[in-house]
Design a protein around this nucleic acid. Structure first.
Lengths: 264, 264
DNA sequence: CAACGACATTCGGTCTTCTGAACGCATCGG
DNA sequence: CCGATGCGTTCAGAAGACCGAATGTCGTTG
């Protein structure tokens, strides 16, 4: 080893290369919902084909990825199903939130979400549909930029301006024409939300969808929130205020349940 | 390890060690639904602590695992949520099965499942509750031994005796007193199921639950099936036959839809 | 209060994996 | 029919991970 010559005394903690690559492959296949070739992934991840080949063979033999009949396109394997549901089961909040979300969905008749901050995104942990629960799990696990959703803004409103600057990835991407991308505007909205106790989204993530969200606290290194969303046609300002009360009450119940759980 | 001087001519395709370990950690944390210490995992997986430490640090920095406030107990992280739902979205069958399962659940009023064979287990891909859809996703991703479920027996009935011997892990574990563990008995039941077109489960995975399942084909290296289950009190022999007809029809619809999809 | 135990963490030498450039094998177009 | 392009796959040298033993750190116990 050439460690003699002067530099690099610092010994920063580095990642285990192929461990990181396994996770990157899973994230890539998960994000795209995709079937990708080895060469595609290699160029996307900037990893040599030959190295990725060995990693994929390992993943395939354990059924974490599957290949086409043709053998050239990879997608997620059956084992990948295990972790998602296990995460929800091992999580205290997701475990106890069910009944509270059901109640909120019944009171409001609209879509209800439980979300958690992960870096700059909000991840849906649970969902209740406004009416019938078709393909309910399709949204769980999905992520949206925090600044473009009521959930994300509710969570961010619990931090001060400096922390918010640090947590977001500037410049902010716009999902719709209404998405707030101006730093000052966003900080002002978050200050409002903090004062008021709830955040809102005016078609900033999906056109014509209004949404109200209330934060639950700053656990897990990120933070959680619950929300209620509906099309503009069913949600005028009066209804929005009314729904905000229901969501706030639900959030209060959840915080109480969580605290009890923490005390054993 | 002891490097045996001179041997190892064969150069078999071996796994990438730390890639395999990442997957083993995910499977361990996923299966136990657990919070485990580094030392626990190291001894369970038979891996040196120091090696596992580096792998876990990599996984933690990417939020695939999280630690306690105390920092000593690991559990699955937020990123783990991504893969499970993405698998379901990328899968043709899971994608189109929704409406068919809904119909079947409505016709029968009972719990409906879509399952897939993975080694010796059946994995639930989708579920419809008999009445209200509370905590619906809790079962998706869960696994049960194939020989103890109607779903598993339906799938296995599509293979011949030799293939069944090969696919199962003998001796068969018993989940309830009724679980079939005798090879001849199981093969006889599977032969019946093949002839009849549907398999059944008489409290073999859960006491007092009867279940009817119909296979969908042998794709994905395993095979798929759908089922309908109910407590014995709501399912006498007459009702069971009646339900078997509904399940068979639903399976027929699904096979047709799948075939169309294959032809573009 | 000190010694213990259980745990995560560090460290350097050895052995493994990683990698760029080669190959084999299809598919496609001229 | 042949060359070109794309893919997955292999290989030996180079680079980095792996592991046992030692250390650091916490909470608990004698």
């Amino acid at each position: 080893m050439e460690s003699v010559s002067g530099a690099a005394r610092v010994r920063r903690h580095e990642d285990v290369k192929s461990a990181a690559r396994v996770l990157e492959v899973l994230e890539l296949l998960g994000a795209e919902g995709a079937r990708l070739s080895l060469a595609d992934m290699a160029s996307t991840l900037a990893v040599p084909k030959s190295s990725l080949h060995a990693v994929l063979r390992t993943m395939e033999s354990r059924r974490w990825v599957e290949t086409d009949p043709s053998g050239t396109l990879y997608s997620l394997g059956l084992k990948a199903l295990l972790t998602g549901t296990a995460y929800l089961e091992s999580d205290d909040l997701a475990g106890i939130a069910g009944p509270v979300l059901d109640l909120l969905a019944e009171e409001t008749g609209e879509a209800v979400h439980l979300g958690r901050l992960d870096d700059t995104d909000v991840v849906y942990l649970a969902k209740r549909e406004s009416r019938h629960a078709l393909r309910m799990y399709s949204a769980v696990g999905r992520r949206l930029p925090a600044h473009a959703t009521a959930l994300g803004k509710a969570i961010l409103s619990q931090y001060d301006a400096a922390e918010i600057q640090r947590r977001l990835n500037w410049p902010l991407p716009a999902l719709t024409p209404s998405t707030v991308t101006d730093p000052d505007e966003l900080l002002a909205q978050l200050a409002d939300a903090r004062k008021r106790g709830w955040a809102q989204d005016e078609g900033e993530s999906s056109v014509d969808i209004r949404c109200v969200a209330v934060p639950l606290g700053t656990g897990h290194g990120g933070g959680d929130a619950i929300s209620c969303s509906a099309p503009r046609s069913r949600m005028d300002d009066a209804r929005l205020s009314e729904i905000a009360v229901h969501v706030t009450e639900a959030a209060h119940s959840l915080r109480t349940l969580l605290r009890r759980l923490g005390e054993h």
